[in-house]
Design a protein around this nucleic acid. Sequence first.
DNA 1: CTGAAAGCGCTTACAG
DNA 2: CTGAAAGCGCTTACAG
Lengths: 355, 355
Amino acid sequence: MTKTPGAPPPTLTSIARSLGLSPATISNVYNHPERVSDDVRERVLATAEAVGYAGPDAAARRFRRGKSETIGVVFTDEMPFALADPASVALLAGLSTTLQEARLNLLLLPTGPPVGASRVSNVMGAVVDGFVFYSVPEGDPHLDAALRRRLPTVVVDEPRDGLTADWVGLDDRAAAAELGQHLAHLGHRKVGVITSRLGRARYNGPADEDRWTQAVYSVQRNRIAGLRDGLGGVALVVEERFENAVESGAAALQSLRQRHPDLTAICCFGDVLAIGALDAARRQGLSVPGDLTITGFDDIPEAGRVGLTTVNQPLVEKGRIAGEMLLSHALAETPRRRFLPTSLEVRATSGPPRP
Amino acid sequence: MTKTPGAPPPTLTSIARSLGLSPATISNVYNHPERVSDDVRERVLATAEAVGYAGPDAAARRFRRGKSETIGVVFTDEMPFALADPASVALLAGLSTTLQEARLNLLLLPTGPPVGASRVSNVMGAVVDGFVFYSVPEGDPHLDAALRRRLPTVVVDEPRDGLTADWVGLDDRAAAAELGQHLAHLGHRKVGVITSRLGRARYNGPADEDRWTQAVYSVQRNRIAGLRDGLGGVALVVEERFENAVESGAAALQSLRQRHPDLTAICCFGDVLAIGALDAARRQGLSVPGDLTITGFDDIPEAGRVGLTTVNQPLVEKGRIAGEMLLSHALAETPRRRFLPTSLEVRATSGPPRP
DNA sequence: CTGAAAGCGCTTACAG
DNA sequence: CTGAAAGCGCTTACAG
């Protein structure tokens, strides 16, 4: 019984008509089977099967019900990059745990490159009951658009200040300060930083103090400030990469060492960058930490396996909590802020500089 | 100008009424701004702003338009597990590339544990224009439900045979045979396999030939068969784990060696399992490949970094192609099947057994 | 247990 | 450039 091409597809109403029943009854067969007599139910299901009716149209039902049972997630990075970073994937995993329990779907919303000619954001038209924004810059137009929809929204990591939405993240400054102290105590006198993007536009290269104090990404800004706090007077130079990827870490390490051959330690603001830096250092024949200390941030599983000294943050838990905040969201409430603990994991890639 | 709680939320119609305009005009302001006079456009936008109207209701618009601009993705694993495997995440990344270019959203559909009391699948109610199924068992009820909706559907990896949908995947048998030959040539005489689930129900432990020839997961079935082809007469024992995770690999390695201390090589059907096995072997003081050869499958980025001998498959590309097949899908066409190339990457974890 | 009625919020031709 | 009309497919009280 194949659908005749050209014939209008079956609908709940057409099934009703063909059976001499009311649409309400057909609806009940699918939504409240117990309210319908066995006889009617069977006839309806048989007809549905015969004409290839797969149940009430999903879009119509969602519309009618007013709930989409879906949460939208927005990343700063384009999706392929976000998915290449185990840290953001871990967040998604945690979030999906909460959502799965609540039987909610997870919609990945690409925001694409700069909003382009049409100043319309994809989040305006997204059929969702709420949003999670992961690490977007201050003044992000997509976040603004989402907030205008007055749907429950949770921001993860950044932006952090002046936010009218719930927020979950870290005390990045304190976390970085702890790392800075560790390096200062080891005796490092000049430290390099490899950070992911500080600005909206694509840029790869050194970042001076002007640039990083004005970064629209508060996480990076706070980490640099914290590192400084912890390092005391130790010199600090910053290298920026637009993409948070292994290759970026490798390339950044090269530039950094070329410009500053006297660096004895390099802090990467992400384990993925650190893994790239480690690879590059070893390919250059450097021993870690003998010739160079390299540290990360996040503590993804691979960090433990390769012995990377890094700052641990509860990645999966962060996603889980973001989901719970979303589900427990009460409109018109004061925005909540939830700081998660971090801890310095000293492993095998940090040590004192050679005398 | 906050929304008065209790007041009905603004709609396109309410805006029209309050301005003495028709709904069609308000609609045009958002959908065809050029068809509207500057004056009217500005008044509408100002009013919208004032009453907190964020544009046409997304669900209503999707319903009316008949397109959801969204593709649904279904995994076998529960989402947190799927997201913990870089191989499935890489697939998602590839898929997202294609979808982003086509401006489509990606909906992650948890199918949850066994469909439970209500024999209703989440895919029935999903507001999507198409589906990608990633590695689900033969006879999967969710896949059946999706197919009944007659939406464009692409199956990745499995099920492979008797499918009425497009398919993209590997020649798993041939790929595994190549690996088997490699091990046979090295001189291994007894080989262990660590495979992820072979059946629908949760089970961890040894799998005999009966079990693996009847597996509902064709990928695993074909890989074991292929390994056998390539190994010739070499003995083969199989250990099964329900979850495809690092911890599973570690645990499986232990059981395998306990039951068969004479194994000299272990093939893992997934790099994540292999990484767990490697960890466990080293924790037990075994040298790899001196005491034990360990191989993987997939060739995720970490595999290269740790020197794992594995079977490479184009993971990201597979996702990209799945997306393209979906977009180019023509109903009533013969299902397409697309085999992607694999290659054995011999690295540092395979070698001859000790004499 | 079944049905008649109302309506969810919008967009699309079409007319003026 | 603006509006009147029709309708997308369904679900929800409510009545019988």
